[in-house]
Amino acid sequence: MYEPITPAGNAVQRANPLVVVCLVLCCLIDGLFIGSKYLLFFFPTSVVVVAVAGNLKRYLALLAAVMLPTATLMFVLQLLANEGGVTYWHWWIIRATELGFDNAIHYTARFVVIGTAVFTLICLVKLSRFTRALEQCGVNPRVTYVLQATVLIIPQMKKRVAVILDAQRARGIETDANLRVRMKALLPVAAPLILSALTSVEERAVSLEARGTTLPGKRTSLLQVNNSTFDKVICIVAVLICGGVIIAVQANWWMP
């Protein structure tokens, strides 16, 4: 007999990952339809929820390193490329106008909503619990293995790139010269990488086969994810609210 591992921690940490994904996706879709004002609700909410889950430091680091530079670039380009209406600022051929400012706010807010949703999911959902929840819902374990293997193989592949790159440098291939020389270095690095990756597919297939992955029958897992009726009700309500908001905005019944 085995004892299932029950998750420890607060309500956010114990929440069913499928419910979290459903809620965040509904918030994201609503955000794409509502507009920039939605960010005033979505962003602080996500910060609070991630803080409760104990991942605020990682979340803020992701925002600062990944989202802030892109959002700044997007804002500046939208501001300067679109011209129309009142001119706020003018220097040489650069002009910041009312239309540019409105577009900059609109599209940058849209990007921040997408980024907030992505980083919230990264900080709240553990892949092992997510794949286990999928399995409990009847998804084939081979499919969930693919999701887990994807995350496992990436660091291995990054290491392999570094090894091949060092090996080719040792053989005299230049990787720091001009563009033409660097382009020439691409094939000697990429070809062994791709070939070794394809060879590893066969090794993995044989290894999985030996472990009985393709055998039929029910799997036993130590990890159990709570999947209550309340979770299902939350998901259904979230989807209904999301659909209602889209209809209300599209039909001009509600103009935020």
């Binding site: 291995q156 592949m157 990054k158 791709i194 597919v201 992955t213």
Partner: peptide
């Protein structure tokens, strides 16, 4: 079954190659 598994395992390897070669383009 091995045949299907080879096809299925192409997915994580393909994703990892996307990632690794994207990084290689940045490195070079």
């Amino acid at each position: 079954s091995v045949f299907n598994l080879m096809g299925l395992l192409l997915i994580p390897v393909g994703v990892a190659l996307d990632f690794a070669l994207g990084g290689l383009a940045l490195t070079l």
